Amino acid sequence: MASNRTSRGSGPSQRQLRVGEEIRRRLSEILQRGEVHDLDLAAMSITVGEVRVSPDLRIATAYVLPLGGKDADEAIVALNRSKGELRYLVARVMKLKFAPELRFVIDETFEQMEKTRRLLAEDRVQRDIAKRDEDDNGDDDGDLG
């Protein structure tokens, strides 16, 4: 029996991933080159970490973060203010039937990675890791090797 491509649990299709990556690349270029006529955006260095596209390719959610994570709310406001121009500039080079609506969200990936790094660096966690390593190395579990 053929698999259902529209099932909810299957994750994004190859086409969604490909289109999302192309939009991410193009948005990054536009912002880096300062192609948008917005002075606030021109003054910011914004990283586009990921773009997720809806199954019908009509909505593209861009996960963005200004350099250093500062002024994130102002960056979202500026991006939303220039949403129409950004949509036009992205769609101009892509071969899609419809120009996707752009939505901007703060990318919290870097913050999550930093929290995990801090957690792993804590003394109590390091002690637990060292204890587990000692138990694994010094444990006589009956192996013949």
Rank of each mutant, 00 (worst) to 15 (best):
G9V: 07
S10L: 15
S10Y: 12
S10R: 15
G11S: 05
P12S: 08
R15F: 04
L17M: 08
L17Y: 00
R18A: 09
R18D: 15
G20D: 02
E22V: 07
I23H: 00
I23T: 06
R25G: 06
R26I: 11
I30N: 04
Q32D: 14
Q32C: 07
R33V: 07
L39D: 15
L39Y: 03
L39M: 05
L41M: 08
L41T: 05
A42M: 12
S45R: 02
T47E: 09
E50I: 04
E50N: 11
V51G: 07
R52V: 08
A62M: 06
V64C: 08
V64S: 05
P66Y: 01
L67S: 14
L67D: 14
G68T: 09
G69H: 02
G69M: 02
D71G: 13
D71F: 04
A72W: 01
D73P: 15
I76D: 09
V77E: 13
V77G: 05
A78E: 05
A78V: 12
L79I: 09
R81G: 13
K83V: 14
E85I: 10
E85C: 10
L86D: 09
L86Q: 12
R87E: 13
Y88S: 14
R92I: 06
K97D: 13
F98E: 15
A99R: 04
P100H: 02
E101T: 10
E101H: 04
F104N: 03
V105D: 10
I106D: 06
D107T: 14
T109N: 11
M113T: 14
T116H: 09
T116M: 11
R118P: 01
L119Q: 15
L120I: 07
A121I: 00
A121T: 01
E122N: 13
D123S: 14
R124C: 11
D128R: 08
